[in-house]
């Protein structure tokens, strides 16, 4: 340790292997998408390397903390780092929310001929603006010969009458509840109530899995019964990209919380005054929840 207060770690092999794993993953993905047979192999080899490095990395960070190497100042660095990481995720979602807003508020009306721009009646005769977009410009102009087709049905608000049989509603209930339980878990660990912590965190993880299960159900329903796919014009595009990225983040968050739960149950990690590993995961979870609330209104209720 370097004399003073701040722990500057020794040399480490983690970063270069993490870079290599990351590179192999994306290089494999690109090859895969371009139809090279080596693609999937490279992709999975890279993904495994990357996961293994991250596993090691976190173990080392945890053992350093247990060994008392982390000063309060260093811990603050982790807190700041996590906060700004979440902000970067906010901006990633902002790009997709922004795209949806632009499409609905500007692009579609213009495509339908509104505004003082070019009259699109020449390009897409008969196209009318609607949301959810069931009839794409291609369908309006080319009828049966259209390549870009809209969905057969959409995921819209069923009215208050149908609320309780509406899956997105239950998804919202599940996620909001999980935000509360993870908060209780946090209070429990601060009060040194290990049992309560394990229960509440366990319930949160369970709710995460339930959400993912329901989301998968919804996708199956959309693909098989509604004719709503990723390729269903801009409605399908925005619907699946927004909910899909959210779902991917829920998956990440659930894994993070599950690891925290296992650490607590199996190893007795986390102390009333030292539990940032868990707290970071819980921040992430709250963030994922907030995104969902946005999605619930923008994609479902007013979708």
């Amino acid at each position: 340790m370097s004399g003073g207060t701040y722990y500057v770690p020794e040399q480490s092999k983690l970063p270069i292997f993490a870079s290599f794993g990351l590179f192999l993953t994306v290089f494999g993905a690109a090859n895969w998408m371009n139809g090279n047979s080596s693609g999937p192999w490279l992709f999975f080899a890279g993904g495994l390397t990357f996961a293994a490095v991250l596993w090691n990395w976190f173990s080392i960070v945890i053992s350093e903390n247990m060994a008392g190497l982390n000063s309060p100042q260093l811990k603050r660095s982790y807190v700041i780092g996590m906060g700004w990481f979440i902000f970067s995720e906010v901006m990633f979602f902002a790009a997709f929310f922004g795209a949806l807003f632009y499409i609905r508020a500007l692009a579609l009306p213009w495509l339908a001929g509104e505004g003082d721009g070019v009259d699109n009646a020449l390009l897409w005769p008969g196209f009318a603006n609607e949301w959810p977009l069931m009839t794409t410009p291609d369908m309006a102009a080319n009828g049966e010969n259209a390549i870009q087709k809209g969905p057969e049905a959409a995921m819209s608000w069923p009215g208050f009458g149908g609320l309780f049989s509406w899956l997105p509603f239950w998804n919202t209930v599940v996620l909001l509840t999980s935000s509360v339980t993870v908060h209780f878990a946090h209070t429990a660990i601060k009060n040194n109530n290990r049992k309560q912590f394990n229960i509440m965190l366990g319930v949160t993880v369970l709710l995460g899995f339930i959400f993912l299960f329901l989301q998968a159900e919804e996708y199956i329903h959309a693909y098989h019964e509604l004719g709503l796919t990723l390729q269903s014009g801009i409605y399908g595009t925005t619907f699946f990209m927004l909910t899909g990225f959210h779902g991917a983040h829920v998956t990440m968050g659930t894994i993070m919380l599950l690891v925290m739960w296992l650490r607590s149950v199996l190893k007795g990690h986390f102390k009333p005054d030292d539990n940032f590993g868990f707290e970071a995961a819980s921040w992430y979870w709250h963030f994922v929840d907030v995104v969902w609330v946005g999605l619930f209104f923008v994609v479902y209720v007013f979708g």
């Binding site: 499409i103 692009a107 495509l111 897409w124 870009q148 990723l230 014009g233 595009t237 990209m241």
Partner: peptide, 24 residues
């Protein structure tokens, strides 16, 4: 996604818009 998975962010035929690309 547009290139490999058939979405239509930047394709007016599906209701998207190439100008959206420029904004983002």
């Amino acid at each position: 996604m547009d290139i490999h998975f058939g979405t239509s962010f930047f394709d007016a035929a599906g209701g998207g818009d190439p100008v959206l690309f420029q904004h983002v």
